[in-house]
Amino acid sequence: MNPSWYWPTPNGKPPLTAVLSVVLPIAVLVLTASTVDMSTNKVFYALPRMLDFTQHLWVMPDWHYLPQLGKKMLETVEMTLLATALAVMISMPLGILAAKNASPNPWIFRMTRDLLSFIRALPELVWALVFVSALGLGPLPGIMALALVTVGFMGKFIAESIEVVDFKAIEGLESTGCTKFQSILYAMLPQAVPDFIGSLLYILDHNLRAASILGLVGAGGIGYDMVMSMRLFNYERIGMIALSIYALVTLLDRLSDVFRQKAIGGILNVH
């Protein structure tokens, strides 16, 4: 680590870098407090209303809404899976082109890198807004928006996991006179698989969360119902929706923990 962080210093005073890294953020926070209306007054004023809101949530759930809820949650999951699958298909070749050791030439490498970072710069909801106004309401614009942003992230992750593979396997294959394509297929990709599964699980998790709010702009999934019941103070439904999102996200979280350990432990035979 940078020696300027070490404490105690020879002269006994706190190191300058450490002091600056505490003082600067605090200064920025203080200076910008008014921009975000941050005042303890307002926060405390809101507390009773928060409590009020929480109390309202303790009502009998609206059981008639249950089938609709199930349908919307299923739609959310389906959007997540479909968008992720599409993104994986598209980002696989892009990721290979964007990995320094697998890319056919430096220009293509740079261009794909920039393309990927351009794609992932904007959040899903912005793309969803654009696609909804282009394609109309429904899950399709949501899937498009999710898949697009996911391509940006997934491509980057794939490229990074290909770049850190062990060079020896590649060298071994090249010494037998294999082509570039063969060395990518048989030396780089198999080594990148555990990493790749890790990032896939991460992306699935991220996409499920994103898909559950895309409905906000009319792009399918549970989000639309959530916003509507929130706006109409439909407390019987808010609780149910929030709980089912919570349950789903937690379930995926636990599943992906188990799965990740298996994939990294090499129990999973994927290639």
């Binding site: 307002k42 809101f53 996200v249």
Partner: peptide, 21 residues
């Protein structure tokens, strides 16, 4: 972690009004 931030934002907006807070 499981509560989407937009859902939280909706809840906070309805209890303390519009604005960045």
């Amino acid at each position: 972690r499981a509560m989407p931030d937009l859902l939280l934002a909706l809840i906070f907006v309805s209890s303390m009004g519009l604005g960045p807070l």
